[in-house]
Amino acid sequence: MSEINTQIKDVTNIQATSSLREMTTMFFRNYAAVAGLILLITILLFVFAGPWLHTTDPFEMVWAPFTMPMQEGFILGTDYLGRDILSAMMAGGQVSLAIGLAAALVSVTIGVSVGAFAGYYGGLVEELLMRFTEFFQVLPTLLFSMVIVALFGASLLTVTLAIGVVSWTAVARVTRSEFLRIREMEYVAAARSGSARDLYLIFKVILPNALPPIVVQANLMVGSAILFEAALSFLGLSDPNVMSWGQVIGSNRPYILDAGFAVAIPGFAIFLTVLAISLVGDGLNDALNPKLRQR
């Protein structure tokens, strides 16, 4: 009898891990996603571990301006003030990634709250919240964030908030549609018959089930937030005291014809990062989407 019991236990253990294992399998079956993941890890290593190996201060003038890459010992050359671009890429990458993450977090927080309440309550609440969302949707996003930064000053915080505030609408719509679907499920009715209140139903019953598409959306949001930050920096609307990829592009912009590499290098870094994040997002979509999983 005890033998049988241990067997049953084994079966249960295998099953308990199988869901996660299945997701990992699905993710790794998508070769593009794996390539994206490797690329992303490389970028993270470069940005966060790089400064330990390459200790030059990104703000210090170290050589003549516009030294070409691979000359005088500067792998990526120097910028218009004679600062080391390699150091700038590392320090700037930290900031760009941090802003991307933080802005995505802001937009997910706003988007999930708006979408969850709209989808759960329906009726007048939904009407008001979704019209509010549409109001934000029709605003030209870059212009709107420029206005916010211009009004409140260019600091890391305002830039992050400005990006978050203009990009939450997609998350809100995804969340709302998931809530519309899940709130009709029987387990929600069952939880209600067990006297769950509205907030409990929203955050502890429905939201966990709505997470997969939101996670994918949030991941893509990180990439677009990095692009956004670059666009704002390019226009000179970012904190001048902080190095970021967009900032490097923006400050070297006037010399683009003489020293194109100073603009091209950070541009390429942004391109690679956003590409990596999108590929990983695509893989996450495969992994979290049960319909694709059965294929």
Partner: peptide, 19 residues
């Protein structure tokens, strides 16, 4: 609800929260 009156639903397949 739930304390004095409990309820069992028709569809055991969908009445439990999957996550």
């Amino acid at each position: 609800r739930g304390k004095d009156i409990g309820m069992i639903f028709q569809e055991p397949m969908t009445s439990l929260n999957p996550v």
